[in-house]
Design a binder for these strands. Structure first.
Lengths: 140, 140
DNA sequence: CTGAATCCACCAAGATACTG
DNA sequence: CAGTATCTTGGTGGATTCAG
């Protein structure tokens, strides 16, 4: 049994954790979640404060995102029954713990984004060349 | 100027890194990327080996995912011009560096998933109670 | 075996208007 | 101020077929 077979085997064992990451990413990998969590990192904010901080988010999406975050215990919702009503959102302990891997991802993104963009550029150039000079590679 | 104003101010400064995480998550937060990267962690694999390892992925999605990963320099594609053709995919150095924050996220997911599920359960119970016994909270 | 191409269903998400 | 409700749409992803 060669390396390849060993590797394919090993997939089964690591599949579990892969799926777990996948599920987590499906949860927080949507369009707005990390942005909302991000603005809540340093202090609790009110509904409209979040709305202003997360540029471009619609009311609907903010409400849905916050509700999902509340449901999963990432943020806590506090209602002050005043007039006008006031609702604060703040990260829970669980939410703050999420900031750790998020920061790791942030560090990676900041460090390697240039490399990614460079790779993308190289790929684009390669594609462009292949399209412009097909006679060199596929002399039909 | 109180804490809240300070916090709102600080958002501007941290906005940049938040957006960076957000962009990265939009890139790898899709349905299949992490799963594909996951199975490639330990060894290069051929197209159909990946297909079998990532249960449920369609040909189309695998091709699209691999192409995007190749474009961004996460995986490298090697063609062996044999008959039948053989194509190996393996993580690049950049791809392997991505495994680090991914593992951090994995650790978080494994550690706190129970807490998340528990929170979700509590939320569901709370909703159910509010729906079943509206007379206690909103005596219409 | 490794794709590319086409068609189609579904859903996330935006816009808008309304409410307590 | 803090949401809900409804409508609409662009894009993601699945199924299927064709090709080198």
């Amino acid at each position: 049994m060669n390396d390849r077979h060993m590797a394919v085997r090993r997939i089964d064992r690591s599949q579990e954790s892969c799926v777990t990451v996948h599920e987590t990413l499906e949860r927080i990998g949507d369009k707005w979640t990390v942005l909302v969590v991000g603005v809540l990192e340093h202090a609790p904010l009110r509904y409209n404060e979040i709305r202003r901080a997360v540029v471009g988010i619609s009311q609907r999406m903010l409400t849905l995102t916050l509700k999902a975050l509340e449901r999963d215990g990432i943020v806590e919702r506090t209602v002050y029954p005043t007039i006008p009503p006031r609702v604060d959102y703040e990260l829970t302990e669980l939410g703050r713990s999420l900031m750790v891997p998020l920061r790791a991802l942030s560090d990676w993104a900041i460090k390697y984004r240039p490399a990614m963009l460079a790779a993308r550029q190289r790929y684009a150039d390669k594609q462009r060349l292949a399209a412009e000079q097909p006679r060199f590679t596929s002399p039909k």
